[in-house]
């Protein structure tokens, strides 16, 4: 399980889990789940183009995810109908589909976009992920209080002279960054489930924002570690386990919240 070829997988997925758990906390409390889903999948054409051209995918993925973040920020991440998000998503998927139809290993490529190729992680990739995750962690630490305040009330943030719109855009860019780091390794589906599942439970298990954020990271780490162990022992695709765990975490959170409400009422 900890053979040489697995070590990089352990390190890379752990790094991704730390970043996804942190960013995911704010994705969940800000109600930005659709954006967090659309940004990784919106980078699909970038990944497909990189494969076609035979180059490293990072820059193209980053470009598409960043473009998506700016576009969604302009249209308003919480816009009532989400139509801009939905149309951005399907356009990018269709474009990626067109690019991939040029390739022979078409079906494997589609699979890799969604679920990653975590066992083939090189040392360079680990370093690249570590760098992106470090940037993400620093950015989240810087924006921690302004994000909390503007999530609580955009009016209060504006009255405290915070650039509310710029912070919202910056946050989507951070989501895009995490996504770009994770996409080639664990795929769009897994990074999304890692963002929303653990955080959705953590926010209901404690009343303190800082603890909830930390708990979200711990739950995300435990999810990827169990997923890797299961992938190794039972040959489950890690995407399957992470997706199922997302739903399990949500259910656990709702039960904890329900129980604590009952205790409080006596």
């Amino acid at each position: 399980m900890f053979a040489d070829y697995m070590i990089n997988a352990w390190i890379a997925t752990s790094l991704v889990a730390v970043a996804a758990g942190m960013v995911g906390f704010f994705v969940v409390v800000r109600g930005a789940a659709f954006a967090a889903h659309a940004l990784p999948l919106g980078a699909f054409p970038g990944l497909a183009a990189a494969w076609l051209l035979g180059i490293a995918p990072w820059s193209l993925i980053l470009a598409f995810a960043g473009l998506g973040a700016f576009g969604l920020a302009r249209s308003g991440e919480k816009a009532p109908h989400h139509t801009a998000t939905a149309l951005w998503l399907v356009s990018m998927l269709a474009l990626g589909n067109l690019l991939l139809s040029r390739m022979h290993a078409y079906s494997n490529a589609v699979f890799a976009v969604l679920f990653g190729e975590v066992l083939g992680v090189s040392n360079t990739q680990v370093l690249a992920v570590a760098a992106i995750v470090a940037v993400t962690v620093i950015a989240m630490a810087l924006l921690y209080r302004p994000l909390l305040l503007s999530t609580l009330s955009p009016d209060l943030a504006a009255a405290a002279a915070l650039p509310e719109r710029r912070i919202a855009t910056l946050f989507l860019l951070i989501v895009a960054l995490v996504t770009s780091a994770a996409l080639p390794l664990v795929g769009a589906s897994i990074v999304f489930s890692l963002m929303v599942g653990p955080a959705s439970a953590a926010r209901l298990m404690t009343d303190r924002p800082g603890w909830a954020l930390g708990l979200s990271v711990l739950l995300a780490l435990s999810t990827v570690w169990s997923a890797l162990a299961l992938a190794y022992e039972a040959d489950w695709p890690i995407g399957a386990f992470v997706g199922v765990m997302g739903a399990v975490w949500y259910g656990v959170g709702r039960i904890v919240r329900w129980q604590s409400g009952r205790l409080r009422r006596g």
Binding site: A141, Y144, R145, P146, L149, L152, L156, A160, R208, P209
Partner: peptide, 15 residues
Amino acid sequence: DVVALGFDGHRYGLP
């Protein structure tokens, strides 16, 4: 926490 955000919620960086 809400009151604490009134104190320094406009500041960047960890509290």
